[in-house]
Simulated assay, not measured.
Amino acid sequence: MLTTAQIDTVVSAALAEDAPWGDLTGQVFLPGTAIATVQLTAREDGVLSGLDAFAAAFRLTDPTVEVDPRTADGDRFTAGDVLATVTGPARAVVQAERIALNLTQRLSGVATLTRRFVDAVQGTGARITDTRKTTPGLRALERHAVRCGGGVNHRFSLSDAVMAKDNHLAVLQQQGLDLTGAIHRARAQLGHTTRLEVEVDRIDQIEPVIAGGIDIIMLDNFSLADLARGVEIVAGRAIIEASGTVTLETVGDIARTGVDVISSGALTHSARHLDLGLDMTVIAGV
Results as ranks from 00 to 15, higher is better:
I203Y: 14
G236F: 02
T85H: 05
A145S: 11
I214H: 04
L60K: 10
G236Q: 05
T3Q: 12
Q122W: 08
R70V: 01
V11Q: 11
S159E: 03
R272H: 13
Q6M: 12
V67N: 09
T245C: 10
I210G: 04
T25M: 02
I254L: 14
T114C: 12
A170K: 11
G230E: 02
V251S: 10
V67A: 06
L248I: 04
V152Y: 13
M163W: 06
T33V: 07
G137T: 11
I206F: 02
A16V: 01
A266L: 13
S159L: 10
D8S: 08
E249C: 09
A255I: 12
E17Y: 11
L40V: 00
G150A: 09
I262D: 08
T64D: 10
A111N: 07
A161H: 01
I239W: 12
V209H: 09
A120Q: 03
L107H: 03
A13T: 14
E197Q: 15
T114I: 08
H154G: 09
L224R: 05
K165G: 00
D8R: 12
A56L: 06
D253Q: 15
F29G: 05
L248R: 04
T104L: 06
G32D: 15
E241V: 03
D260T: 03
D215G: 05
V82S: 04
L179M: 11
L190M: 15
A13E: 15
T25L: 08
I216G: 02
F58P: 05
S49G: 09
T245R: 15
N102F: 02
D8I: 09
V282L: 15
L83W: 07
Q6C: 06
